[in-house]
Simulated scan of single mutants.
Amino acid sequence: MNEFTVREFTVSSPDAGPYALAEGPDGALWFTLVHQDAVARRDPGDGRVTVHPVGAGPTVIAPGPDGAMWFTEYRAHRVGRIAPDGTYSSFAPPTPEGGPFGIVAGPDGAMWFTLSGVDRVGRVTMDGEVTEYPAPGAFPSAITVGPDGALWCALNQQNAVGRLTTDGRGTAHPLPTGGAAPVGITAGPDGALWFTEIGAGRIGRITVAGEITEYPLSDPAARPHAVTAGPDGALWFTEWGSGRIGRITVDGHVTSYALSRPDSEPHGIARHDGAVWCALETGSLARIEVTHDRTHDRSHDRSHD
C-alpha cells in the first residue's frame, strides 16, 4: 500500500506567511514570505533558512532558465528576481496596479506571469524586458506550461481555464460547474492539465483539446488551492479550508491526509528532494514522503475526511 510520512519544519514566525515554494536550480527549496515581504531559501543539506528582503507581497515563485528564482510581488505590482547569492532585482509591467500572481518559466526562454487585477498575462525576458497580452478571461491566477507548448492559466472569475500561445493568442474553456473559481494549475504526468476548483471543492482535468473532467472532493468546503505533479505519478494539492493535503491519481481516486493543525492554512505545494512539500501560512513547511504502489492506486484508494 502507499505509505505517507509527514514532517513539518518551522521556518518563520506565524505571521510571516509562507505562501508558495519551488525547488531552485541550486537544489534548494525557495519560498515566499508574503506578509514579511521576503523570499527565503532552505538549504538542501543542513536545512538552514536564509531570508532575503524583497518587494511587497511576494506571492508565487518559480525557477528561471538563468539559474535564478523569479517571483511575483502582488502588492508591489512587480516581478522579482533573486540569484542564489541573494542578489535581488525587480521589473515593472507596463500596466500599473496589475496584481501579479502566477509565474512560470515559458517554453521560449522567458518567464510568464499573470496580472490578475487587470486581466492580462505578462512575459519578462532574462534581461528584464516586459511585454503583456490580454488574458483569455477574468482574473488569471496560476499559470503553467502545457505539453502543447502553450501557457495554460486558471481564470478564477471567468470560471474557465485559459490557453495562451507564446504569440499572445488566447482561448477560454468554460468549466461545467458554476462558481468553481479555479486557482491552481499544473501539467500532469498524463499529458493533461490539472487544476483546483476552490469554490466548488473539486479537482479538474483538461486535455489540450479542451475536454474537461471534474472530480468532487469528499469535503465540499476543502477549498483546494495549489496543485503539483508528485514523484509518485499522482497529483497533489493543498486543502486550504480543511488544513489537509490531497492526492488524486490520474484515474481520479482521491485521498486526503491531515496536517498537524486544521488551521495550518496550506497554500503552495511543490515537488522537492523526492517528496512533496507545502507551505503552511502559519509558519512552517511540511514534507510529505511517499512510498508508491500502483496496484493500490487502481483498486484501494479511499477518501479520508
Rank of each mutant, 00 (worst) to 15 (best):
D301G: 14
S303N: 15
G80K: 02
P107H: 02
L175H: 07
A105H: 00
P220W: 00
A209F: 02
V227N: 05
G67A: 04
A209L: 07
Y215R: 07
T295M: 10
L217T: 09
G210K: 11
G233Y: 09
A16V: 07
A229F: 04
W30D: 05
A40P: 12
G274C: 08
T165R: 03
G117T: 05
D273I: 09
W277E: 06
V124K: 02
T249N: 06
T10E: 12
Q157G: 12
R48H: 14
A222I: 12
L33W: 04
S284A: 13
P231L: 04
D66W: 07
P262T: 08
C278P: 13
P58T: 00
D301V: 13
L29M: 09
I212K: 00
P107M: 00
A222R: 05
Y19T: 12
Y74P: 08
A226G: 08
L155C: 04
S89L: 02
N156R: 15
G117I: 01
L259Q: 03
V60S: 08
V104Q: 09
V51E: 03
T125E: 06
V49H: 03
R271P: 02
T165Y: 00
S256M: 09
S12T: 10
F71L: 08
L285I: 11
T125P: 02
A275I: 10
T196W: 03
T10C: 04
F9A: 03
I269E: 11
V121W: 03
P174V: 01
G274H: 13
V250L: 13
E265G: 08
G27C: 07
D190R: 01
F237Y: 07
L29D: 05
S116M: 11
P174T: 01
H173Q: 01
G80S: 05
I248D: 00
A221H: 10
T50A: 13
Y215T: 08
G146T: 02
